[in-house]
């Protein structure tokens, strides 16, 4: 790797202060599973002068239940989330999503904050500098999206306009499903954004000098059943081709609440209100689930090579909903 200065910080406030003083030349490193690869391959034209290690900050890896729900520190590791009884008990989709990421070693290193802030997996964006030079594109601030007229088999079906990179985070899909909020710390103090507002078409809501301070998930509705599913070519290792999460509440066999979220189909994880509304008030027979999946995907705008993701997304939605009906392990 090209050289950088390495700074350990011991409080989040200190981290914010260093970020501010660096004038955009510092980058945060947490688990390192994404950024080290990004730096080694030199995929970005800018290279940080400072790597700011926040792992030295004590007690930021908490997973805490409280009366409002669950609080998760930005340094909570994915392996910990997948194993945590508190997460598995009421936030099963999050445990499943965390467990679906990478390999055991990756999950021992990667943090939830890092998972939300990771760079996209778009293979044009990630093209390695060592083989003829990095590729520039709209997301890097120069040129247009190369996927539009290229091989876009993994790219976005929804909400993309100028950059068609899809959000790679599985954890984000579960967090969206569960209505999570992200607490952000910055120079001006703290602010909170809902997860659906965290991801932007070309990145995320963090302004320069800001950092994720924590994540809060409200207690799911009583009786909610939830399921996260991920479609990949291999079971471990892979990023999602499509991921889906569903949550339903039934009352006497009638659906009173339904949430559907998809990952890897848009610049951020995405909810589908029309499909959710369609389910409410209905008995969830197979044909109803399939209909809802169809409604969800109605607005999809496939590119030349990613149309197949529509069928997969529909299948995952139906299967995630079915699993909610069948799977008792995440009931409470």
């Amino acid at each position: 790797m090209r050289s950088f200065q390495h700074i350990n910080v011991f409080t989040l406030e200190e981290a914010v202060s260093v970020l501010k003083d660096s004038g955009g030349k510092a980058q945060v490193i947490a688990g390192g599973t994404d950024i080290i690869g990004v730096l080694k391959e030199q995929i970005l034209p800018d290279y940080p002068e400072i790597l700011l290690n926040i792992k030295a900050i004590p007690d930021l890896d908490y997973i805490k239940k409280d009366h409002e729900g669950l609080r998760i520190g930005p340094l909570a590791k994915l392996a910990g989330l997948a194993k945590s009884p508190a997460v598995r008990e009421k936030y099963g989709a999050l445990a499943q999503a965390a467990r679906s990421v990478g390999s055991p070693q990756i999950r021992n290193m990667a943090t939830i904050g890092g998972n939300l802030c990771q760079e996209t997996r778009c293979w044009y964006y990630r093209y390695p500098h060592s083989i003829g030079g990095r590729l520039l594109c709209l997301r890097k601030g120069s040129g247009s999206c190369l996927a539009v007229n290229g091989d876009n088999r993994y790219h976005a079906l929804f909400d993309a306009r100028r950059c068609f990179a899809a959000c790679p985070s599985d954890v984000a899909v579960a967090l969206l499903l569960l209505g999570a909020e992200i607490n952000i710390l910055g120079i001006g103090g703290k602010r909170t954004v809902y997860l659906q507002d965290f991801f932007h078409p070309l990145g995320n809501a963090l302004e320069p000098g800001e950092i994720i301070g924590g994540i809060h998930i409200p207690t799911p509705p009583v009786g909610a059943k939830q399921q996260f599913l991920k479609f990949t070519l291999r079971k471990p290792i892979d990023f999602a081709v499509v991921s889906a999460a569903a949550l339903i509440v039934l009352d006497g066999g009638i659906c009173t609440e339904a949430r559907i979220a998809l990952g890897a189909v848009a610049p951020g994880p995405r909810r589908f209100p029309e499909a959710e509304n369609f389910l409410k008030g209905k008995r969830l027979e197979t044909n109803v689930l399939e209909k809802a999946a169809g409604i969800a995907l109605e607005g999809a705008k496939p590119l030349s090579k990613n149309g197949y993701k529509i069928e997969i997304a529909k299948t995952l939605i139906s299967r995630a909903l079915s699993a909610c009906l069948e799977n008792e392990s995440f009931n409470h």
Binding site: H6, I29, I36
Partner: peptide, 21 residues
């Protein structure tokens, strides 16, 4: 996975870890 070592007993990928950390 070739570079897997144990860090405090847990398997991790030593190619993605900075020694200073």
């Amino acid at each position: 996975g070739a570079c897997t070592v144990l860090l405090e007993g847990e398997p991790v990928l030593s190619c993605l870890i900075l020694t200073v950390e």
